[in-house]
Design a binder for these strands. Structure first.
Length: 733
DNA sequence: ACGCACCCGATTTTT
DNA sequence: TCGGGTGCGT
């Protein structure tokens, strides 16, 4: 036992370079790790947590690691568990939003919410704003919902209250927004709902109003570590500052050159001024890149050095020069797609690559379509990250809205969403009558439904329909704690009869919707199994779902080419990367070419894309491309001129394949799209399993594939064992 | 209350 | 070009 601990402690520092080691060993006080792309940023973070637990004997429950995505949080947890014995206690790796949502669930009453509050996503926000705008009597001119939504979000992120917004309004739009903003906040409160921004703002309010509550959390967390610090916004900055005020052990890791979420409130200031904000802070610069070839890195450096607001850094690598970066110069958008696919096949055959080695990145989702068509035509498997998310599909949102209404009937947006779905003859006129009744009596929309008998103008048959609806919601509301989420959801879907309806409809679209709902029910079932006896699992499920995103589910296990936006690619790496559409108007996007700050963010976005590539980078552009139905010509991106010419290899080879010749669907030389066995896929370090003989344990390491897969598992009772999966009959918990 | 036709608008989207 | 949202007609 002691031997193993020694070995592990040694492992924690082994394989780190000098700066990385210094950063890990610097445990006391604030520290800033400026980590260039591919320089082992997450490595420093995970090793530091492991070091704290193992060397400094800090209970893991005192260490808080915050990230932006669930995927990053999950990976961080797994990597820490590979380094240290997890038995010291719970390990806290979480996203900002889910961490603070968790706090808010506990403290909701103090802020006038109940603990089963609903989290509103962008769609719900839009629906609410729309409702408010439609209800405004003196409205002269309507404004685009999304413009209002993002303005309100902007105001909130700058801690501007509706009163402030009113005072500082300079034009009609500002005034209009300020009015809606006020009502928007009131409505959220009445609906017992919070939007994403509130998940950060309400904790600030909580800490402000209840200093003893803040003191509790300050005492609770001895160490706070943050990944991707360059993307934090102002509320996040304030929260980090107050949470770490007592122990002062705040470690932030980030790269100002990779800050690409300014448009969403991220403040580059946070990382640029960290040394001023935390006076005695220690700064570490990780400038050695382990990911890319020298050529790729030179291109990346030559681009990003054109930015003015950045901290001076020079990435270098011991890796080989590698191939030159290729510039695929095309005349049209279609040619671009063909050429990329041609290159993929070429790389595939010449360099023995897997399809999962390739990523095709683009600035806008709309660009994916042409590339997808070409991939399909050539029988190459691909996965798209982003676009329409599973949980944003209409049918999924409909079911979720029912579940949300059941958990929180005050959630007016959800109730309204489903009151006439499936169609049950309750139309706009009736809704308006109920609405008026509710505002006359100052009651919630749902209470209005239950008191529909008092509304004279509604005809009896309609009343009955409304009563049926509200009774149904109440029925499920009353059993939510006695039956499992899975059972509740399945019964509800059954009662609604939508699966049958979609089946009868029979169209491809309807069948897909039916399947999606089936998939949702499966997910709820899984969730129920995993969280048995955890109180109200339906509410938990809804919270988890509202904080999940597409990239969280992306797993590069399937042998397929990955397509995604430059934004989604941050944090990932691929042997071969294509960046499509390096044109004026697209990169930089025309809207963001006018002011310097926007332009610099576009440049960083390009930089992020370039630095995803390990071995080979292709840049691609088209002289003409169809956009919004028109043919447009932006010309090569200005960023191309920032690359030294001897780093680029111009490739203008014509791809001489016509549509008809390419219409075969499978090429014998291409492997069949194949997914890895689900069992092997799910078994990852950090996962809890049950063994028929040894009981419960946590997976530490996985080696081998297929039938050969073995795993080191640390069991609660019998210690660590190496298990051959094939024979073990493990149950994944 | 529902269906169809037309019109407008159109980044990126960690949560 | 394409999809969603509005408004009119039944």
């Amino acid at each position: 036992m002691i031997d193993r601990q020694k070995r592990e402690a040694h492992n924690i520092l082994r394989g780190l370079n000098t700066v990385q080691k210094q950063a890990v060993e610097c445990t006391d006080g604030p520290s800033l790790v400026l980590a260039g792309a591919g320089s082992g940023k997450t490595r420093v973070l995970t090793h530091k947590v492991a070091y704290l637990i193992d060397r400094k004997k800090i209970p893991s429950s005192r260490i808080l690691s915050l990230t932006f995505t669930n995927k990053a949080a999950r990976e961080m947890r797994e990597r820490i568990l590979q380094l240290v014995n997890p038995c010291y206690g719970e390990l806290w790796c979480s996203t900002f939003h889910s961490f603070f949502a968790r706090i808010l669930r506990m403290e909701a009453e103090k802020l006038g919410y109940t603990q089963n509050f609903t989290i509103y996503d962008t769609d719900d926000q839009a629906a609410l704003i729309k409702k408010i705008q439609n209800g405004m009597t003196m409205t002269i001119e309507q404004c685009p919902i999304n413009a209002i939504r993002s303005r309100i979000s902007h105001l909130k992120n700058h801690l501007k209250l509706p009163e402030h917004a009113k005072e500082s309004a300079v034009d009609y739009f500002d005034e209009h927004v300020a009015m809606i903003y006020q009502e928007y906040q009131d409505n959220l409160k009445a609906a017992n709902a919070m939007d994403f921004d509130d998940l950060l703002l309400k904790p600030i309010e909580l800490f402000h109003l209840f200093p003893e509550s803040l003191a509790y959390y300050q005492k609770r967390w001895h160490y706070v570590l943050v990944d991707e610090y360059q993307d934090t916004n102002h509320p996040q900055y304030l929260l980090l500052k107050s949470l770490s005020e007592k122990h002062r052990n705040l470690t932030v890791v980030g790269d100002d050159d990779q800050s690409i979420y300014r448009w969403r409130g991220a403040s580059l200031r946070n990382i640029l001024e960290f040394e001023k904000d935390f006076k005695d802070c220690k700064t570490f610069r990780l400038e050695q890149n382990y990911r890319s070839t020298k050529n790729i890195l030179h291109v990346a450096n030559s681009i990003v050095m054109h930015n003015s607001s950045r901290m001076e850094k020079q990435l270098w690598t011991k890796n080989d020069d590698g191939e030159l970066v290729s510039l695929l110069w095309n005349s049209t958008g279609e040619e671009e797609s063909s050429r990329i696919i041609y290159k993929i096949k070429d790389e595939f055959q010449r360099n023995k690559r897997n399809f999962s080695d390739f990523a095709i990145l683009y600035r806008t989702n709309a660009q994916s379509r042409a590339i997808e068509d070409e991939l399909r035509l050539n029988g190459i498997a691909y996965v798209i990250v982003g676009g329409i998310r599973f949980y944003e599909r209409k049918e999924i949102k409909d079911i979720l809205a029912y579940l949300r209404a059941v958990v929180n009937p005050l959630d007016e947006i959800s109730v309204r969403r489903v009151i006439n779905f499936p169609a049950r003859g309750i139309g706009n006129v009736t809704l308006k009558k109920i609405e008026d009744f509710c505002s006359q009596h100052s009651i919630s929309f749902f209470e209005g439904l239950t008191r529909v008998a008092e509304i004279d103008s509604i005809a009896e048959p309609t009343m009955q329909k409304i009563r049926n609806f509200s009774d149904m919601i109440l029925k499920y509301n009353s059993v939510q704690h006695t039956i499992s989420a899975a059972e509740l959801a399945a019964t509800l879907v059954e009662e609604l009869g939508i699966l049958v309806k979609y089946k009868e409809e029979g169209s491809e679209e309807a069948l897909e919707r039916r399947d999606n709902i089936g998939e949702l029910l499966t997910q709820i079932r899984q969730f129920s199994n995993e969280n048995e006896g955890n109180g109200n699992s339906l509410a938990h499920f809804l919270e988890e779902v509202s904080l999940i995103t597409d990239i969280d589910n992306w797993d590069n296990d399937s042998n397929a080419v990955t397509l995604m936006t430059l934004h989604s690619a941050k944090g990932l790496e691929f042997p071969v990367v294509f960046i499509a559409g390096i044109e004026e108007g697209l990169l930089p996007l025309s809207r963001n070419s006018n002011n310097l700050e926007d332009l610099e963010e576009e440049r960083r976005l390009f930089y992020v894309g370039i630095t995803r590539a390990r071995e080979k980078l292709y840049l691609s552009l088209a002289e003409r491309r169809i956009r919004y139905g028109d043919s447009s010509f932006g010309g090569p991106s200005r960023f191309l001129h920032e690359i030294k010419h001897d780093l680029l290899e111009l490739d203008r080879t014509q791809v001489s394949v016509s549509r008809s010749q390419r219409s075969y669907s499978y090429d014998d030389n291409l492997p069949v799209y194949e997914k890895k066995a689900p069992a092997a896929k799910k078994l990852k370090p950090g996962i809890i399993v049950r063994h028929p003989r040894f009981g419960k344990g946590v997976v530490r390491r996985v080696e081998g594939t297929g039938k050969e897969t073995k795993a080191d598992i640390l069991f609660e009772d019998v210690g660590e064992k190496k298990i051959v999966i094939k024979y073990a009959n493990l149950e994944i918990l």
